[in-house]
Each structure stands twice: as C-alpha cells, then as structure tokens.
C-alpha cells in the first residue's frame, strides 16, 4: 500500500475511533497518522508558546 493511501485509510480509522470514543485505539495509531488528521502540516516539533519568554527584553532596553 502506498504511503499516502495508508495515511488516508488510517486517518479515517483514527477519526472514526475518536468519534466512537475508542481512545485507546486512537492513541495506538502511528504519530504520523495522528499528525495528518489533526491538521496543520508543520513537519517539525511545536513549541509551547511562552508569552513571558517572548517579551523578555535584552540589554538594549533604555
């Protein structure tokens, strides 16, 4: 089975298992399937947004 077809079939299974409240089955899916279904296609890791860290200012602050 081609990779894309696998993702599609597995994605449908994943969505159905969530709908049917089979959490354990959904959690057992490969990570790439879960990522594909959840939308947003950034291929890397998503960082937690820490607003305080972003606002931190350096030595330049006058």
């Amino acid at each position: 089975m081609k990779r894309r077809s696998f993702i599609k079939v597995a994605g449908l299974l994943y969505a159905y298992s969530l709908f049917a409240k089979c959490g354990a089955f959904a959690a057992a899916m490969p990570g790439r399937v879960i990522e594909a279904v959840r939308g947003g296609f950034y291929p890397g890791k998503i960082k937690r947004l820490d607003l305080k860290a972003i606002a931190k200012q350096g030595e330049w602050k006058g």
Binding site: P43, G44, K47, L49
Partner: peptide, 23 residues
C-alpha cells in the same frame, strides 16, 4: 535547516498581530 528539524510555535497571522499589540 529543514523545517522538520526546527521547533516552532503555532501562531496564525491574527494572533501575531494581537501579540505585537499586547507588547
């Protein structure tokens, strides 16, 4: 670096503008 090796935040354009205003 290719994007899959760089950790990123998830921020839509509307959210980005709100953050700029907030700071």
């Amino acid at each position: 670096s290719p994007p899959h090796l760089v950790d990123a935040y998830q921020v839509l354009p509307e959210q980005l503008v709100q953050m700029a205003i907030r700071y």
